[in-house]
Computed example of a mutant assay.
Amino acid sequence: MSENDEVPREPWEYCLYIPNDPRAVTVSRRTLRLILTLHGLIRLVDVAELLATELVSNAVRHTKGPAALRVRWAAGVLRIGAWDADPAPPEPPVPLEQTAEVEEGRGLALVKACADLWGWQPLSREGNRGKVVWCELAVA
């Protein structure tokens, strides 16, 4: 970032609950763009949109219930997560060099290649189960 860019100092967090509908991916991507623009993080928008699209697409495509886009900023790190109600772990990413040969599995390979860090964690809260698949982008 240039010296004139203002990086948010205070932490913030958003959560957008979405239905299991392929159109929710577009809603999530556009919402993320708006959030990052309003917080002065326009430089992260393109990569963040790609990552969020892959995470939310997987949540919508591979599960039957609702999902959510989670976005958090703290200490110079943007964390993007997709929650879904299925507690099963995501399929391991296919190595990026092999993605041209497969129909599916490119999403997490892109996340792994573009994010500074990524992972998943099971969740259990108030009797609800599920998982969050997340990735992080650090502002250097």
Rank of each mutant, 00 (worst) to 15 (best):
E3S: 10
V56F: 07
A115P: 11
R29N: 07
R23G: 08
A74C: 10
E54T: 04
L41Q: 09
E3M: 08
C15D: 02
V45K: 02
R61H: 15
L34D: 13
T31M: 14
R129T: 12
L44H: 10
R29M: 12
L117R: 15
P87I: 09
A24K: 08
C135A: 12
P92G: 04
L50M: 12
T37F: 09
N4E: 12
L96H: 08
P122W: 00
P93C: 07
G127Y: 08
N58P: 06
E97K: 05
W83L: 12
E104C: 08
E54G: 08
I42W: 02
N58V: 05
I18F: 01
P89N: 04
R61L: 13
R43G: 12
R129M: 07
T31V: 11
V132A: 03
C15I: 13
E91V: 07
I35N: 02
P19Q: 11
V133W: 03
V7W: 03
K112A: 15
V47T: 15
A88I: 00
T99H: 06
V27M: 12
A68D: 03
V132H: 02
R43M: 04
D84V: 09
W12N: 08
W83E: 09
A68V: 04
E13T: 12
K64W: 07
C114P: 00
D46Y: 04
P95R: 06
D84E: 05
V102E: 10
E126V: 02
P87Q: 06
T37K: 13
A59R: 07
Q98N: 05
L51A: 05
L34M: 13
I42A: 14
T99R: 05
E97P: 00
P122L: 00
M1K: 02
V102I: 13
L16W: 10
V102G: 00
L34K: 15
I18M: 14
A59H: 07
E126D: 15
L44A: 11
K64D: 12
T99Q: 02
V111L: 10
L50S: 09
G105K: 04
W120V: 01
D5N: 10
E54L: 06
D5G: 00
V56P: 08
Q98I: 00
G105H: 09
A48D: 04
E6T: 12
Y17D: 13
L137T: 10
W120L: 06
L123S: 05
K112C: 03
L78H: 05
K131V: 02
P11N: 09
W83I: 00
V139S: 08
G40W: 01
P22M: 13
